[in-house]
Amino acid sequence: MIRLALVGCGRNAAALAAAAAASDLCRLEVAADIEARAAGDLARAAEARAHVGDLASLLESNAADVQAVIVNTPNDSHADIALAAIAAGRHVLVEKPLALSADAADEVRRRANEAGVRLMVAHTLRFMPANVQVHRALAAGELGKPGMLRSHRWLRRFPGPPGGWKHDPARSGGLCVHEAVHEIDQALWLIGERPTHVHAQAQPDLLQIHLGYESGAMALCGVATGLPLGSGYYSLALIGSLGAAYADDHHNVQLIYRGARPQAVMTDQRASGVRAQLDEFARAITEGREPSVSGADAVAALQIAEAAAASSASGQTAHLTETGYVLA
């Protein structure tokens, strides 16, 4: 069993703790947060020890009990906490984005390699059960050569008061870095090549990223974070030369009749996705291999996210180069 410390007991922490509790491969030992209440609440729910303070103090007082650290803090602290954990010889699972810039992410990747610890980044879409089936069909050759990836992901409005870190692009990285790295990583994973063109359009809570590839493939991904009600919406279509795969809520809505009218209910795949992700992290540690979502994957996604942000800000198209992008 891999012994884990969870740093950051805010949003997502409960899902991560539940995944650890359900796993046969890892166990949550410590729930840490700089706020005592957050650490205490999660520790009680997860039957773990609470720690109030930063990573250094956590490792000082719980050194023997922590083999790996999950970084679940605000985005602008991911890289520093990951670097500290790596420096202390701990394996690290970092919430996306790995860092606020591709360069900073690459530094984390490099340090993890040097230290010989496993670094994994939580690009969770790869672990969502529906997407796993799509990827499996693609890998088995059932769909032929990927031609078009279309996705929509709608989220409820960012929680928290105005002024919270998610509302501050300087701390979150903005929509491209904070949210669209999911879509970009998914496109890299499913299309299987790096795009040559990135064209993006953005509003404060809307983003559209359009990727073009040397092979002729294309991807069009939409993210909306301002949905006023509901629990979100997800849709993916992957069109290949021999077939197509569709994974979406629109086909999979259940109905509940409550009161006078039917209501849609979506079966949430997120819990099993988070658990599969955590199990992959634990297996990579146990087997001494690179996780399926590596630091290099996270760096690649962030490079494209930066190009997308530049495209949406300029109204131009970003043409990717080996080291960056050119706007035209």
Binding site: G147, M148, R150, Q203, H210, I239, S241
Partner: peptide
């Protein structure tokens, strides 16, 4: 197949995916 991003009137974001996909 084709994908199109559109800048529309009133700042609306549009997109279109189209294909004769077999």
């Amino acid at each position: 197949i084709a994908t199109v991003s559109l800048e529309m009137q009133r700042g609306v974001i549009g997109s279109l995916c189209i294909g004769r996909i077999g």
